[in-house]
């Protein structure tokens, strides 16, 4: 483990490179010539007002939408034109803002199908679920705290459980990069804390994470680095603690009240 971190320290090769990516819908540039990198094991937080192009950026990276121009590299490979299946197999798993789920499948089946098809594409999946897959599904059920709901159809889950299930189906594909689209939007404070605890466990496994979130307290407490988007462009990229002091971010996105709250949340006495 030590040797590995030395290796990455000596030659810091980024895991994800977004290079001059634009996405146009007619005359509207949802993402406008955006470039950034994510290092292995790093947590990048993305914020910005509604319509800033955050989810479109996720769609472009994960192959659900095509970039109008620019390149996306993952672990040195060009994935700009790859479909979502290939990108999943390459090691990127994402969640969706709209709490996607396979509603008629049980919680366990939701995770099983991701475990069978998400890590590598099986040539023929066979007629039985292999024991190694079952063990990975059990582990994901345990990690997400959904073990007690394994037999429930996903369509009957409450909001928090749906969000946890989406993360469970993502991590069971064994990604190197996890992309979370508003993972805690609409959750209560206690639910948010449960989510933070789970993400801390996931981080412990060395996964890089990109997360989009409007709940700034959540974003700045988890992220190593923060990127703020506005009209498809980057208006801030840097350490979370400087965010509330950036005049432009405060003006177009946070407002003065929220900036004070973030300063309070990042108080060295409260958060190390």
């Amino acid at each position: 483990m030590d040797g590995l971190s030395h290796e990455t320290a000596r030659s810091p090769r980024p895991l994800l490179v977004v290079d001059g990516v634009s996405k146009h819908f007619g005359a509207l540039a949802a993402v406008d010539n955006l470039s950034f990198e994510v290092m292995p094991g790093e947590v990048l937080g993305i914020g910005g007002p509604n319509g800033a192009g955050k989810t479109t950026l996720f769609d472009v990276i994960t192959g659900l939408d095509r970039a109008s121009s620019g390149r996306v590299l993952f672990a040195g490979h060009d994935i700009t034109r790859a479909g979502p299946e290939r990108i999943c197999h390459a090691g990127i798993a994402r969640t969706f803002q709209l709490n996607a789920g396979f509603d008629t499948l049980s919680v366990r089946e939701n995770i099983e199908v991701a475990a069978i098809y998400g890590h590598v594409a099986p040539v023929f999946p066979g007629f039985r679920i292999r024991p190694v897959i079952r063990r990975r599904v059990d582990a994901a059920l345990e990690l997400s705290g959904l073990a007690g709901r394994a037999a429930t159809p996903a369509g009957e889950l409450a909001v928090l459980e749906r969000k946890l299930l989406m993360v469970a189906t993502a991590i069971v594909t064994q990604p190197r990069l996890l992309m979370l689209d508003e993972p805690v939007g609409g959750l209560t404070q206690a639910e948010m804390d449960a989510f933070v605890a789970m993400l801390a466990r996931i981080r412990g496994e060395g996964m890089a994470i990109i997360l989009i979130e409007h709940v700034m307290r959540f974003l700045v407490s988890l992220a190593d680095r923060v990127l703020i988007m506005h009209h498809g462009e980057r208006i801030y990229e840097g350490r979370p603690d400087d965010l509330a002091n950036d005049r432009r971010v405060v003006d177009v996105y946070l407002g003065d009240g929220a900036a004070d709250l973030i300063r309070a949340a990042l108080d060295p006495g409260v958060v190390p």
């Binding site: 999943c88 197999h89 994402r94 789920g101 098809y117």
Partner: peptide
């Protein structure tokens, strides 16, 4: 879309 994003 979700199924494709999980490798299917």
């Amino acid at each position: 879309g979700y199924a494709r994003s999980r490798g299917i």
